[in-house]
């Protein structure tokens, strides 16, 4: 190793972690998602003070405080709207949004659609465990219809929500699926998602070992996406609609122009604005 390389040593994942211990249960998939996020930050050598992590409410939404970036842990379901404000007001910042399936697809469903449409340069990471864990085990929009729970005895009987296809139909510019148990693969996808212009959506299958212990078996069934990512949203949607729900990797890369956040280079004065009122 030369002196030069030593001087520009890349940051480590641990440089992006705070000293606050997570509230998560032992074995929760979110630990490795946090690891993957911080590894991606390290690989991209993001400046922590130029990076903002925004979330809503839920187990996974606790993640901002576990990084040493700027963070905002807001109200339930509104993380994408809040992050939109941060990014439009301060386009030079790197903004990540994190949360769970209930936060993102149930109470926050409308914002998910419109964040995809608006295509602002955000990276949205959803840790999907198909359950409300913080409130101790209720079905979420991605829960299987026959999953039994105290709140919906015998199951909801409802068809699960399909976030990846909804994201494609709504205009997301980058769509990928990951598995928390594959931190290296997840890190690679997140690194690309953060760099991809526009709205990037990464669904991470992240087991809830407490309320969905059977999800421990996900490690046996996940497999890399068998085909190259496409830039054709219709083709990507067809593949995702017909796959087994466990293929991981980048599924779609679009080239839609991101939302305009540029300001005028020649701002006018207040007096110019006031002229219109003068009689």
């Amino acid at each position: 190793m030369t002196d030069t390389r030593a001087a520009v040593a890349r940051p480590k994942a641990s440089d992006y972690k705070s000293d606050i211990p997570p509230v998560w249960c032992p074995g929760c998939g979110d630990y490795t998602v946090l690891l993957s996020i911080t590894k991606a930050m390290a690989q991209l050598a993001l400046a922590p003070e130029e990076t903002v992590v925004v979330s809503g409410i839920g187990c996974s939404s606790r993640i901002p405080a576990y990084t040493n970036c700027y963070g905002f842990h807001g109200v339930h379901g509104r993380s994408l709207a809040l992050a939109t404000g941060v990014k439009v007001a301060r386009p030079e910042l790197t903004v990540l949004v994190a949360g769970g399936d209930g936060d993102g697809f149930s109470i926050g469903g409308n914002h998910f659609l419109h964040a995809c449409r608006r295509n602002i340069d955000l990276t949205y990471i959803v840790m999907d465990n198909r359950v409300y864990g913080m409130t101790k085990g209720q079905p979420s929009p991605t829960t299987e219809p026959d999953w039994d729970s105290a709140l919906s005895p015998g199951g909801t009987g409802l068809r699960p929500f399909h976030p990846l296809v909804i994201a494609l139909a709504s205009g997301a510019n980058f769509v990928a699926r990951c598995f928390s148990g594959d931190p290296n693969g997840t890190t690679k996808v997140l690194t690309e998602a953060i760099q991809h212009p526009g709205f990037s959506f990464v669904e991470i299958l992240s087991p809830c070992v407490t309320f969905r212990p059977e999800q421990r078996g996900w490690s046996e069934v996940v497999h890399p996406a068998p085909v190259e990512p496409t830039d054709d949203a219709a083709q990507a949607a067809r593949r995702i609609m017909t796959d087994d729900g466990f293929n991981v990797g980048v599924l779609y890369r679009g080239d839609r122009e991101p939302y305009r956040t540029a300001r005028t280079e020649t701002p006018e004065s207040l007096a110019d604005l006031e002229e219109e009122f003068a009689i």
Binding site: G74, A81, L82, G85, R90, N110, R263, P267
Partner: peptide
């Protein structure tokens, strides 16, 4: 004057957008 307005999808979004921008 060098600012910007975003049309939101609902009022839940508009209040959170301004909180995010002001946090910024």
């Amino acid at each position: 004057v060098g600012g910007i307005l975003v049309q939101a999808e609902d009022e839940l979004a508009s209040i959170n957008m301004i909180i995010g921008a002001s946090y910024g």
